[in-house]
Structure formats: structure tokens, C-alpha cells
């Protein structure tokens, strides 16, 4: 079945890069904070499987440590989006049609209306370029995604019998949201979270590519590409490997998201197939 193939391939790719990130805490082939100008721009060899960069740093080691940056930024950004978006979506659904609902949904539309990359650039221009500000900038745009998703799913749940039963037994909207609605949207959240995670990786790469993400000496994939800009015409390996790392990680997460959706949400399977 294709579903499991997606899940397998996606899971494998994700596992490889997560593992690389985890291993990098304990061991990397070369120290990425040490520069060796004499060994700069070496093509791939046994000593340096992916070659070295313009400061003589080992590219394999940099990709491993860079995975850490990308994953950390994306996870926290998605976390922010969920932590704020899910309660907002639940609240909007619980008070459907109220002023609160209207304000939340208009607020969502408003955030959607802002060109996200542009706002991210403005945020980092105001507060300075750093990984933390990149997280905030990406996180903000995750809020409406989760709020909308949860509101939509919760609205249909509120009409279901088990919720009605809970209401009859005297539970308030907060308790119902927490005890009955939330558990039933977790699958959706896992699937959407995976997709947002991959978008977060792409956004982080774009931000650090324009110099607004994690700052040196912390390696990041986007900045490796930016640094390679002027050199990849004679040293293609500088651009190919970090680019592939982004591509494969995002691909892995997307495949895994699709696979998870098929697995966790049978109702969606028909639509997808």
C-alpha cells in the first residue's frame, strides 16, 4: 500500500536527519567552530566526505549541527503555533457566532493577509537577526493555521451525541473542550503539525538564507547556501549538499505527514486517493 510506503520513506528520512542532529551533540567528525583556512574549499574526499567550506570547516559536520538548528527552530515555532492556535480555535468553536469567535477569525484572516516572509523580515529588522526572532516570526504564522483547523473540526464535534451528553450532564464549555473535543482533534493536529514542521524548516532556511536566521558561529543550512552563493560555480558541492539536506528533510516530513494522515484519519483517506 502506498500509505505505508509514504510513511516508511518519510519516517526513514526524518529519522536520518533527526538522528544526525542528536548525534551531533555527542560527536561530529570535525569541530565546526574551529576554522582551518589552509584546508578551505576542498572537494569531497575520504577525510571530508562532503568536502570543506570557505573557512575549511567540514561540511558533513556542519550539516549535522545545522540539522539541530533547523529542527529546533521549526519545532519551537510549530509549538508556539499550537500552544496559541489550539486554545483559540477551541474557544472560537465553543462560542460559535459570538463576538469572540468573530474577533478570533478576523484576527486569523488578518495574519493570513500579511505576506509572511515580509513580516518575518520586518520582525528581524526590528528586533535583530537571531534564531529566537526567526522562531517568533515563523511561530506567529502558525497560529491561524491551527486555530482554523481546530475550530473547523471542533464545530462538527460540538453537534455530536457524546458532546450533547456531556452538556446535559452539566459540564461547562471549557471542560467539554478539554475533555471531549481536544482528544478527538489530536490526530488532525499530528498530521497538520508534521506539515507545518516541514514548512517551518523551509521558512527557517529562507530566513537564514537572507541572513536573518541563526547567527554565526552556529551553522544553519540556509546560511551555508548563502555563503556558497559566490563559490558554487566552481565548487558545486558547497551548494548541493546543504540544499539536498533541506530538500530531503522537508520531503521526509511531507511524506510522513501524508502517511500519518492515511493511517490516523480514515475519513480523509478517500479524499486523498
Amino acid at each position: 500500500m502506498r500509505a505505508s510506503r509514504n510513511l516508511w520513506l518519510g519516517g526513514l528520512l526524518t529519522a536520518v536527519f533527526s538522528l544526525a542532529a542528536v548525534i551531533s551533540f555527542a560527536w561530529v567528525p570535525y569541530d565546526v567552530t574551529k576554522l582551518d583556512i589552509g584546508a578551505k574549499l576542498l572537494s569531497p574526499s575520504w577525510a571530508h566526505p562532503l568536502g570543506t567550506d570557505h573557512f575549511g570547516r567540514d561540511i558533513l559536520s556542519m550539516i549535522m549541527v545545522g540539522a539541530r538548528t533547523s529542527i529546533a527552530v521549526a519545532i519551537v515555532a510549530v509549538g508556539i503555533g499550537m500552544a496559541l492556535g489550539v486554545p483559540l480555535g477551541l474557544a472560537a468553536a465553543a462560542r460559535k457566532g459570538s463576538l469572540l469567535d468573530e474577533v478570533i477569525m478576523r484576527g486569523n484572516d488578518l495574519i493570513f493577509a500579511f505576506p509572511s516572509l515580509l513580516i518575518a523580515i520586518m520582525i528581524t529588522a526590528v528586533f535583530g537577526a537571531s534564531a529566537v526572532n526567526a522562531i517568533i516570526a515563523i511561530g506567529i504564522f502558525n497560529i491561524p493555521v491551527f486555530a482554523r483547523l481546530v475550530r473547523g473540526a471542533a464545530l462538527s464535534l460540538w453537534t455530536r451525541d457524546f458532546v450533547l451528553a456531556a452538556r446535559v450532564s452539566g459540564k461547562g464549555p471549557v471542560r467539554i473542550s478539554a475533555e471531549h473535543i481536544l482528544p478527538n482533534v489530536t490526530n488532525l493536529l499530528i498530521v497538520q503539525g508534521t506539515i507545518q514542521f516541514s514548512l517551518g524548516i523551509l521558512a527557517e532556511a529562507a530566513l537564514s538564507y537572507v541572513g536573518l536566521g541563526a547567527q554565526p558561529p552556529l551553522p544553519s543550512w540556509g546560511r551555508m547556501l548563502a555563503d556558497a552563493q559566490t563559490m558554487f560555480s566552481f565548487k558545486p558541492h558547497l551548494a548541493i549538499f546543504p540544499g539536498l539536506a533541506i530538500l530531503l528533510t522537508v520531503l521526509g516530513l511531507n511524506l510522513m505527514g501524508d502517511g500519518l494522515r492515511d493511517l490516523l484519519d480514515p475519513r480523509l483517506r478517500r479524499a486523498q486517493r
Binding site: A206, Y209, G243, L247, N254
Partner: peptide
């Protein structure tokens, strides 16, 4: 196509 960073 979805996964490739467009600047790359």
C-alpha cells in the same frame, strides 16, 4: 516540488 527551497 513542494519540498525544494525555491531559492536553491
Amino acid at each position: 516540488g513542494v519540498a525544494i527551497p525555491n531559492f536553491w
